[in-house]
Write a protein that binds this DNA or RNA. Structure first.
Lengths: 419, 419
DNA sequence: CAGCTTTCTCCAAGTCGTGAATTAAGTGGC
DNA sequence: GCCACTTAATTCACGACTTGGAGAAAGCTG
């Protein structure tokens, strides 16, 4: 079986005291250099061998050597040429879009979405399936059906799919076991369940992390190496990114920012504790606070209601207070992140986060400054997400791609007969 | 000038998306393997070549090759032999204690301490110097004088000192510039100031981090790869460790855990914000809360007063309430760390932390469980520091050693004429 | 078409880890 | 006292790798 969380440590990453003792061989060197070149080509678009040589500080000879190999394997292809001041034109290189495909799946509380992408992240097929309650077996069934469906409708062979990235709620440990306390998923071996239904490699991660990954690659996080992608919707979560790759703790369940206490002994949270950030800035709780303060709204749809509250803040004093408080709580939550992990960028997203941010971003920034220490605050920029909610599946689909890039384009031994 | 914070990223550490493009050469391979072997020998005591071969998965031939080199350079030495069931005895290897020396300096608010160690961390000389207020120039002067003093009294040549690790308060950025908002150090180029007074490499880090490092290497953190060392004294701080080496953010100022909001709009903190953890569990603030609640203490010495308060909790209801609240706040702070970074171990230290922990550790553990999510809580163990306060300088002295180990025993080009 | 510039590739080192063979250094049996 | 026997460490030929430099390729200019 091939399945796992996206967090498996790869050898040679850690160089600290408690590092796993791992030798380096001449083969690791080559894989590492292939990875550097392939990542460069993937990330910074068509690039010539010459530019690659400069950027990677590899010799021109080695670049040529490695690129020849990558082209022979089909991962990379030439993409026209561009004039070079006077001399022989540079040949541009890019990752072959159709070398392999990737699938991203988003498991939400009300639907399962499965999308098929080529390596350039063009969407080739999408399938949505509404669900009533996220029962593990049902979800697994819909993900697998969705997988078959997008493959069928696009004509893509299973053997050419690099992997399926699956975004779920809750905590995902290194063995792709999912824990979602609030939804009753208690140690569900989700990765294994999926892997039993397909030979394609399965990678599972938390939805906040995959959305964060999408923002880091294609959205507001581009260029940052240490960032936090904060998601505020009904619930509250965050993806912590350090050194350019999503950070996770021992068992890869880091980032439960929403269940961080900011008001000791305060409002009860659905996690069972009191005073969690989520209990103050989660959309549901914001609306609840508004009702308790005597506010009235015309709709019961959460998103519409939240928008109505924001609009009401212009005129109603009660609404304005609630909104101001929400900004305060949220900024305290941000300040905690700023002080604790000192990111260079905070990306605010989630539907409620975006609604808030669109109107109150400057105020939010100022409030964070009041709560955070000067030095780390001076180095953080707070911006809004650039990608929509659909990016959850997109981010999930980047998981197999990240693995491909890190492996230098070396494919894992496949159990699917090669096509 | 050779100075820097301890946080400089070394090439090849990051393998994520935003990694710095860095080639790997055959030379990196060798350095990496030397590092693996040297670290193994240093960390796990006398080890034979054979054991090294097994642990590093390097071939016996390579181990032999590398060890021969390390011995020739003087970093490693043979240390007797041990019988091997029946055959040729294994020759044990250890790091040569007197190959080089390291200095650790602790800059506190009331004193400067400088200590000289050999590579086995035996103390060869210590100098203390009381100071009234930590003026940058004065502190620099005392560190440099202390350095000269420990060298003089021990007869160690400056050229054999690997480096000076300096532990300071406040935030230390990657250029060894110190920011200590509460003490008026605003962007003090501390590393540079020190480097101007000596040719020995200077490494600067926050005291909480160095103490954390000491606990990770020689204390309660041994064996853990993802841990938090929390220090509760007059102030409150934490060292975050991931992957075995102290984590720092973009500008290496992570870990200001004490200035994390746990009570929105609560007590004012000396950092200027409100409701910081430090404003509730910092010793000064705990005593203040006790006084405000009508409690009386017989001494004005902070540590004695704190101990008295804890003793009074046995009989006085007011004291008991204050202590119970303190445990509650502290456990919320721990739970935040558990949820956010998901460490496998939390090490509690600092004089107030130890006093509290000695009496109330089980209660603290239970309270953390009430605030944290089940899954990450089930994977964390909460223990007490094993090393005393003196370990700050010890931890600082490990900084040059860490660098030596990571460099595989290759010495940096020295400006001091070789001795 | 010659001359020039720049890009890319090929080739002869030089470095490194590895497996197999070899040497070193003990123990135990007779 | 000598000869297996066992295990540890070293030596050596080999293959994999990067690299600098030489040379080929591919365009432009006059």
């Amino acid at each position: 079986m091939d399945f796992g969380a996206a967090a498996d440590r790869r050898p040679g990453q850690d160089r600290g005291w408690a590092m796993e003792y791992r030798r380096t061989t001449v083969r690791d060197m080559r894989r590492s250099n292939r990875s550097v070149i392939l990542t460069g080509i993937y990330r910074d678009g068509p690039l010539s061998r010459q530019e690659l040589s400069v950027r990677t500080s590899l010799s021109a000879a080695s670049v040529s050597n490695l690129v020849t190999e990558l082209i022979a394997e089909g991962v990379v292809e030439e993409a026209g040429s561009v004039e070079s001041e006077g001399g022989r034109p540079r040949v541009l290189l890019r990752v072959a879009r159709e070398f392999r495909y990737v699938v991203g799946a988003e498991v939400g509380e009300t639907r399962v979405r499965v999308e098929l992408f080529d390596l350039a992240m063009n969407v080739l097929a999408t399938v949505d399936h509404p669900i009533e309650t996220p029962e593990p077996e049902v979800v697994v069934k819909h993900v697998l059906e969705g997988l078959a469906s997008v493959l069928g409708s696009s004509g893509v062979q299973a053997s050419t799919v690099l992997g399926v990235g699956v975004a779920v709620f809750g905590i995902v440990d290194a063995e792709a076991v999912v824990h979602a306390q609030t939804l009753g998923w208690d140690a569900v071996p989700f990765g294994q369940m999926l892997a039993e239904g397909t030979d394609i490699p399965i990678l599972v991660d938390n939805g906040a992390n995959t959305l964060g990954q999408a923002e880091m690659w294609f959205g507001a996080g581009r260029g940052a190496t240490d960032a936090v992608v904060a998601l505020v919707g009904s619930g509250v979560g965050a993806a912590l990114v350090t050194g350019g790759s999503s950070y996770r703790g021992t068992r890869s369940s880091a980032g439960e920012w929403g269940h961080t206490t900011i008001m000791y002994g305060g409002r009860g949270c659905r996690c069972g504790a009191q005073g969690c950030l989520e209990a103050y800035v989660g959309a549901e709780d914001v609306l609840d606070r508004y009702h308790q303060a005597g506010g009235e709204l015309s709709t019961s749809d959460e998103e519409a209601a939240f928008a109505e509250l924001l609009a009401a803040a212009e005129t109603s004093e009660v609404a304005a207070t609630i909104v101001a408080d929400t900004i305060g709580y949220l900024s305290a939550g941000f300040a905690n992140l700023v002080n604790l992990v000192n990111p260079e960028r905070i990306v605010l997203g989630g539907w409620a986060g975006l609604l808030l941010g669109e109107r109150y971003l400057p105020r939010l920034r100022a409030e964070v400054g009041r709560h955070a220490l000067r030095q780390p605050y001076s180095q953080v920029s707070i911006v809004l997400c650039e990608l929509g909610r659909d990016a959850v599946a997109l981010g999930a689909a980047t998981l197999p791609i990240l693995r491909l890039l890190q492996d230098g384009g070396v494919l894992p031994p496949s159990k699917v007969p090669a096509g």
